[in-house]
Computed example of a mutant assay.
Amino acid sequence: MTEKLMGHLSDRPWTERWLTRLLGAALSSAAYLLCLPWDLRNRVESPGSTSETTPVTGLGVALLAVTLLLLAAYFGRRDALAWPLLLVAAPPATLMYVSFRTHPEADASPWSLTWAFCTLLIAAGVMVATSVARRFRQDTGDSMDGLIYAHR
């Protein structure tokens, strides 16, 4: 059972590989939606204020970060290097972009810069967690990484 849950995805059947990847993308999307809920009502904090209320909390951001790092470590250990970026970082970045685009524009809207910074931060965190997890991976001699090093 451990081999099935923690073994290389490249050694698993095609359907199991893709269902696992689909589940990973769904989990990262669900984590974003649960930890950073959308408040489509966008109310001002007080009459005459230019700031709006937000349902985002520090605890929600921390829980999202931990969840994404755990997913990145899991897929980093099991799959090829680029997959965690696509499965773990791309869904929250896409949902954040949609969230920002549905927000009414202000005169000097910082949403594009905020989205770019957050996407870069999420992607960097995913890549670091993936790299650390790959250090604990026990490669067999027939993987592509082994072939690359064998030709040097």
Rank of each mutant, 00 (worst) to 15 (best):
M6V: 05
S109K: 00
F100C: 04
A150M: 12
R152Y: 06
L69Y: 09
L68R: 00
D139M: 02
M1L: 06
L9T: 05
S49V: 03
M96S: 15
F136W: 14
C35F: 06
L34F: 07
G7Q: 10
T119G: 04
R78I: 12
G7N: 02
A26I: 13
L95Q: 12
D39T: 12
A116W: 11
L33H: 03
P84R: 04
S99G: 04
L69E: 02
A93H: 02
M96T: 08
R134C: 10
S131H: 10
A82M: 14
R77H: 15
D79R: 03
T140W: 11
I122L: 07
T102E: 09
P55T: 12
E52D: 09
T20H: 10
P55L: 12
P91R: 13
A89D: 14
T119Y: 04
T114Y: 15
R137P: 01
D79W: 10
H151E: 13
T20I: 13
V132T: 14
Y97S: 15
V66L: 03
A62F: 01
D142L: 02
F75C: 13
S51T: 11
M127W: 11
T119N: 00
R17D: 03
R101F: 11
V56F: 00
L33P: 10
L5N: 03
A116L: 15
L36C: 10
G76C: 08
G60T: 02
L81K: 14
V56G: 00
G125Q: 13
C118Q: 13
R78F: 09
R78W: 09
L147A: 06
F136V: 04
W111S: 15
K4S: 08
G60I: 02
A150T: 08
I122A: 08
R21V: 11
Y74I: 04
I148L: 09
L69K: 12
A80D: 09
P92T: 13
R21G: 02
T119K: 00
L34M: 07
D39Q: 02
S51N: 01
V98Q: 01
A129N: 05
L19R: 14
L69Q: 12
L70A: 03
T67P: 05
P104C: 05
G141P: 02
L64C: 01
Y149E: 07
L147S: 09
V88L: 01
F75T: 08
V44W: 00
E45N: 07
L85I: 14
T53W: 03
F100M: 09
F136E: 12
L81N: 01
A150F: 02
G146C: 05
E52K: 07
A62Q: 01
W14S: 10
M127H: 10
A31G: 01
S99L: 04
A82C: 07
A26S: 05
A89W: 08
T114N: 07
P47R: 00
A123V: 14
H103Q: 06
A31Q: 01
F100Q: 06
A108L: 07
A116V: 13
P55H: 05
A73R: 08
R43G: 06
F117S: 14
Q138Y: 09
A133H: 07
R137K: 08
I122Q: 10
G24K: 02
A65S: 10
E16D: 08
T20L: 09
F100I: 05
A90R: 06
C35H: 00
A89C: 14
D145G: 09
L64Q: 11
S131P: 02
